[in-house]
Amino acid sequence: MRQGMLRKTGDLNPMGRRLSASGLSAWRFLRRWPVFPILVLAVLIVAGVAAPWIAPNDPIDQSLPLRSARPFYQDDSPYMLGGDHVGRDVMSRVIHGARVSLAVMAVALSAGLVIGTALGLLAGYSGGVVDELITRAVDVWLGFPFLLLALVVAIVIGASFQVVMALMVLLAWSPFVRNVRADVLVLKESDYVALARISGASTTRILLRHILPGTVGTITVIASLSVGGLILAEATLSFLGAGIPSPTPSWGNMVAEGRDYLQSAWWTSTFPGVALFLTVMSLNFLGDWLRDRLDPRLRQLD
């Protein structure tokens, strides 16, 4: 019955009107494939990687006469998205800010993934005390309002790019452990693992060659579902002044700096926020889509 209802809404656009044949196939295509999210992410990746070449201006060059220059080239402003309170180009800063989000994905997520997966494999496969210890550690870890702890760390060590990335790793690892562990518990009882053990395969080999491939789907889903939250966490930390230090542009600290100039320059807070919002939304969409494809078990009906 649910299937039937889905098909019905699939054939209609949200207004409930029937569409023409070509419109229908286009609508179906958009529903089936995450076109929009992939587009946004492509832009993000290009912007992040090629920032120095495509940004129209230097992101930290200040300019007295261009303080709060208006966006969209009004009043002969040279800036597409306006200038901030010290005359820096908001557009160039937004483009450079994409690098921080990319770094969160490339560094923090992958490090968290490796650590979390390794611990998950270890906990699930060895069982006993090791399992208990790791599982409890994850529970305790999830029992903290992490961002506040991150504030303390940032103050103690001093906020810098490396510290922020390390903090994001600390935030990223825990969801992998639980889900990988659950997979391993099932996989290790399977016949082919038993056979591998009988034929004398070492524990390392069993884990890496026989069990790990079975958890790839779960790992992919968890990675894609958690990356949006990680980027948001970094932005929040930067917003609170404990993340990427100024003047390096990150979307979080840009929104924070614009807060005090809302009256005179609304664009300085708005545009980095839009970039952040689009990125996180796209990643969430992509995550949902991947989950439905790869691991419907993790699905919360929607």
């Binding site: 929040t236 917003f239 929104v255 969430n284």
Partner: peptide, 22 residues
């Protein structure tokens, strides 16, 4: 639900100030 999931709290707050206060 989607909007609430993706929109950063700090940005929503600032946009609210921009719209309703400024």
């Amino acid at each position: 639900a989607l909007f609430g999931q993706g929109a950063p709290t700090f940005w929503v707050g600032i946009m609210a100030i921009l719209l309703f206060a400024v």
